[in-house]
Design a protein around this nucleic acid. Sequence first.
RNA 1: GCGGGCGUGGCGGAAUGGUAGACGCAACAGACUUAAAAUCUGUCGAUUGAAAGAUCGUGCCGGUUCGAGUCCGGCCGCCCGCACCA
Length: 865
Amino acid sequence: MSRYNPREAEPKWQAAWAERDSFRAGGPKAQNGKPKYYVLEMFPYPSGRIHVGHSRNYTMGDVIARYKRARGFDVLHPMGWDAFGLPAENAARDRGVHPGKWTHDNIDAMRGQLQRLGLALDWSREFATCDPSYYKHQQAIFLKFFEKDLVYRKTAKVNWDPVDQTVLANEQVIDGRGWRSGALVVQRQLDQWFFKITAYADELTDALDTLDRWPEKVRVMQANWIGRSRGATVRFPLTETEIADEFGPTIDVFTTRPDTLFGASFLALAPDHPIVRKIAEDNPEVDVFMRECARMGTTAEDIEKAPKRGVDLGITVRHPFDPSWELPVWSANFVLSSYGTGAIFGSPAGDQRDLDFARKYELAVNPVVLPAGEDAASYTVEDEAYTGPGTIINSRFLDGLDTETALQRAISELESLKLGEGSTSYRLRDWLVSRQRYWGCPIPIIHCDTCGVVPVPADQLPIVLPEDITFDQPSNPLERHPTWKHTDCPSCGKPARRETDTLDTFVCSSWYFLRFTSPWSEDKPFDAAEAEHWLPVDQYVGGIEHAILHLLYARFFTRALNDTDLLNMASGEPFAGLFTQGMVTHETFKSGDGRWLSPEEVERKHDSAVEIATGKPVTIGGIEKMSKSKKNVVDLDAFVEDFGADAARWFVLSDSPPERDVEYTDSGVEGVWRFIQRLWTVVISLPEDAPGPLSVATSAEGDALALRKTAHKTLKGVTEAIEGFRFNSAVAQIHDLVNALRKAEGGGAGMVEARAETLGILARLISPFIPHLAEECWHRLGGDGLVIDAPWPEVDLGLLVETDLVLPVQVNGKRRGEISVAKDLDQESVKQIAISEEGVARSLEGLTIRKVIVVPGRIVNIVAG
RNA sequence: GCGGGCGUGGCGGAAUGGUAGACGCAACAGACUUAAAAUCUGUCGAUUGAAAGAUCGUGCCGGUUCGAGUCCGGCCGCCCGCACCA
C-alpha cells in the first residue's frame, strides 16, 4: 500500500494555489458581494529563521482564514515584517554586515519558510516596515500628530537602558530592567519625544468593556496599566510666604478619599518634589534625605524592603476646611513624584502607609471612619488602618454621613471654598517614542537655532536613513555621521540640524494592520475607504506578552488617526477579536561546562542524555518556551523536510488547548505521522469507482447509516470547535472520524457510498488544518478542482436525530444500568423499562421507589430508600 | 498586599448540572517477521473479585440538587499580571 509522501505533495499543491492566486483578498472596494473577514497574526520580527514554536501562531490564524474562506467570506490574511530593531544593529556590530542587508536576508529566508508551511496568505500585500515606502508614511503620520498636538517634546526623567544605549518607554521596563536587554534601567533627565496617549486614557479604559471577544485577562491588565482613579485635587494653603512666592500659594495633592480629610495629620512630598529641592538648599538634613532616596533601587525587591522614612521640612500648610488648623509638611520616601501631584495628605487611620509613617514619627492618628458594628466612643486604630466603608466621625459637618456621601459632600465643599475639585488621576504616562538608535524610522524634525523645532515639510519626505554608517562605537550612529544631520532650516533657510533620534519600533506595529488594507497607496499611509472597509481586524492572533505594549499602542493609534483627516473608523478599536495563543515548549539540555545544547547535539535515552560530540553526560533542564537563547528550538525547515508542513501544523494544534502551552516531544510527532498515514490509508482504500466526494449516500442503512451519522455529528462538532477556537477538540473529533472509517472498511449495503460521502466530508473538514493532504485526498476521491474552492459541507440535521436511544439509569445518583428505548416513547413506559432492567432491579431490591426522574433523551434517575 | 486564572489517570488533556477520564502520548500483552523497525489487535484510575460485579475516585471541608469535575461558601496549593499608584 502506497504511503503519503508530503515531500512530493506539498510543493505541488502550494504551486497550484499560487498559480490560481487563491488567497488574494477582495480587491479595491471588494465588489464581489461577499462579506469581509480580516484575520491577522502579529507580524514577525525577522530575527533569522522560523522554528516550530513560531509556527503555532500562524497556523491558528491560517485555520481561521481557510475556514472563513470556505464559508464564503472575502478573507484578508496578509503578512509582513516588523523589520526595524536593535538585533540588526547588533549583527552589524558583531559581524560587520549592514543592518539592512541582514534584515532583508532574514526576510527572504523566513518568507520561504512561511510559504513552505502552506499558509493561505495574500503575499501581494507584503511589506517590511524598514522600507522607505512604509516609513515615509509613518513620518507623515508623525507630522499629522504634531499638528494636532498629539506629539510633543519635553525634558523628563526617563528610563535609560545602558546596554542597548537608548531610552525606553515605561511599558518596556519590566521589574526595573529593559525588556530586550534585561539590563537594570537607570533614570536620566533627557529631552525626548512623547505621544500623548494620556489624552485617550478615559476612552481607552471605557472601550475595554466593548471588547467582548478579547480575553478578560488582557482587558484587566490594560485597565490596571492605565490605572484610572477618581477622587479629588485638594489645595492646602502654605503658611510660608517665601515658598509660596516661588511655588504658588498652595500645595496640591490628589486623593481618592476626600471624605477622610478631617483625619489628616500631615502632608508628604516626594523626595524629588521641587519644594523639597528648594528647602534642601539650606537644610542639610533634607539634602541628605533627598540624596539617599535618589540612590534607592527601583526594583520590586528594593521597594518592598525599604522601610518608610521621611524628614520634616519645617513648613506648614492650613487645612482647607479650617484655616486655623496647621499641618506639618514632610518629605517621605513612599511618595512618588510620577503619580498624581507628587504630594499626599496623610490620613493615618485610613491608610496603612500613612499609619506606618505616623507611628514611626509620632504623628496624630485620628479615626474618622467608623466600621459597621463598632462603637464611636471606644473605637481606636492601633497598627492596622481601616480602609473600608463606614460612618464618618470626628469630622464636623461630615459626621454621621456614610463614606460615599461624605466623599461627594467634601468635594462640593472644596469646590465652594475654591480649594479643590473632583478630579481623576491615571497611572498611564505619555508614550516616550525617541530612541537613540540607527535602525528605526527617522523622526521628521529639524532643530534650528533661530526657529526652534521645525517639522520637515511633507513634500520632503521620506527622510531616509544614510547607508554609510559605522558601529565601532556604542552611541547613536546617526549622531556620529559626518554629514547626515546637517541641513537647512525649512523655515528660515539657515543651517540647522536634523533630529537624530529614531522612533520606537512599536510605532511601526501600531498601524501596519491599516497599511495591509491598501499597501499600494503612495500618497497616503492607506486608502481610507479600504481601511474603513476592512477594519476592525475580525480575528487577531498573537502572544500574551503584548497584552499591554503593542495592543495598547495600537488602540491609541487608531483613535489618534481618527482625530486626523486620514481615517474615520466607527469604533476606534482596531481588533474586534483577540486570541492569545500559548507557546510551544521543549526540553532544554546543558552540557557539563554549562553550554546550552540543541536537541540535535544530544542523544536522548530513557531518563538520561549524552552529548553526541563528546559522549559526556548532559543535564536535562526544564521544559521551556522554544527560544534561540536556550537552543531548545526545532527548525521548521528541518521538520518540514522530515515530516511535512501538515505534520507541523497538526502537531501544534493537537492535545493542548490553544491558549495553553504545548510541549514538543518526538513521540508526539510520531503520533502525528501515524495519523497522517492512517488517514491516507482510509482514503486510498475506497474503491476507485466509488461516488465522488460531494455525493450523498441517501440509501444507507445499518453500519453504513451509522457511519453517516458519525460523519455528520463530527462535521457539526468540528465546525463548532473551529468557531470556538478549540482546535484540540477539533483534532480529537477528526481522529474519531478516521477511527470510525477504519472500522467501516467492510462491505454491506450502501457502505461504499457512505464511505465516499464521509471521506468527502473529511477532506473538507481537514482542509483548514492540513490543507495539502486535504487536496491530495480530494484529488484521489475524484473531486472537481481544489478542495479549498469546495463549499464547507452542510450538516444533515435529520441524521443527528436519534430514533433509538440508549439511556443510562441511575439509582440514587449512581449508574446501575442502561436501557434502549424508542425516542418518542412516553415517560411512563420509560420508567417501567428502567425499573425492570436487570442491574437496576438488583439495586432496588429491598428498597421502596420514592420518585423517578426522567430527563428526556438524557438519563433516568430512580430515588429509592 | 491587590487583581486574574487553574487544581481530573503515568503524561497532554475531554466532559450544555445528567454514563468522569473522549482523543492522543507512554506502558504492557499478542499477531505479522529469520530478526528488528514499521504496521495491526487487545489491555490500560484505585481497591477487591475466578467472573459477573462491588466499593472508592476530579486538591481539602461543607452546602444547594433527584443528580455536582461543573453551581455556592470556606480553606490549601500552583501559575500569571500589577505592586508604596495616595
